[in-house]
Simulated assay, not measured.
Amino acid sequence: MKRNIVIAVVTAAALVGGGTATALAVGGDDDDSTSVTRTDDDREDRGEDRSDDRDGDGDDDTARAAAPGGVTAAEAITAALKHTPGTAVSAELDDGSWEVDVLAEGGTWHTVRIAPDSGKVLGAQKDDEDDAAEVRAALKGASVTAEDAAKAAAAKGTVVSVDLDDDGDDRGWEAETRASGGDEQEWSVGLTTASVTTDHDDD
């Protein structure tokens, strides 16, 4: 005789590998049943998976907001240049670390990763970029470095990125800051005066 009833019975509680096991018996027919055993470790694994999914789904702004602080953009640039001498062209707090792009002697590009809580070099890699000539042309006659621009923009908030804008006639540094309330603002920093103005392109 077939029964269309689902019976869930807690049949046993035992210690399995240091955790608690719960046995569930689920049946729809007399002759067809399925037994599922779950342990505390399984539950913990599922919780970790959900946490990993949340971490992986965030955008750059979320990653920057979650990153530990302490090391400023200017300090990250200084640390990167000490490791890889050259000209810093950009610095961004991304995926839990500062990433500083350096144009080294000979026109080779390098990305240096800096820990935002200690200032230590986490790693460096050579990049295949071919715009060294354009960058050098944009910086010709400039007296304000990326580090200087980061320091100047810091008066407006916490700097989370600084980058060289070498397009068009209005060349200069672009800096992004975050206020204590979380609001973000982009600024333009001059290549010769370090003057900080609102980036109207952001508007």
Results as ranks from 00 to 15, higher is better:
V36C: 13
H83I: 02
H200L: 15
E92F: 01
G17M: 00
T145D: 05
E134G: 12
R43F: 12
G168P: 13
S161W: 00
S51I: 09
E186N: 13
G157H: 10
G141I: 06
Q125I: 10
D131T: 11
R50S: 12
D29R: 15
V121L: 02
D203W: 15
V100R: 03
V162G: 05
A153Y: 05
T20K: 00
D41V: 07
A66D: 01
A23Q: 03
D57S: 05
A66V: 03
D61Q: 03
K82W: 06
K140R: 11
E184S: 06
A153D: 10
R113S: 04
R3F: 12
V196N: 07
T177E: 00
W173G: 14
S180G: 14
S51N: 09
A25E: 13
G157E: 08
G58Q: 10
A124Y: 02
G157L: 10
D42L: 03
R171Q: 13
T62H: 02
L15E: 02
E147D: 13
D130R: 13
L93S: 09
D59E: 11
D57I: 06
V196A: 11
A23T: 05
A104I: 08
A154R: 00
S195H: 07
G19N: 10
V135E: 11
L81E: 09
T62W: 01
G28Y: 06
R50L: 14
D127I: 02
T37I: 13
R38C: 04
R178W: 02
H110G: 01
S188R: 08
V26G: 13
G58P: 07
A137Y: 12
A73H: 06
D52F: 02
G181C: 12
G70K: 00
T198A: 13
E129T: 08
T145C: 12
D31L: 14
V144H: 06
D148R: 14
A12L: 06
G47W: 00
D95H: 10
R50Q: 09
P85Y: 07
V16E: 03
D128W: 05
R54C: 06
D127Q: 10
D94V: 11
D45I: 08
D101L: 07
R171C: 09
L164C: 12
E105I: 07
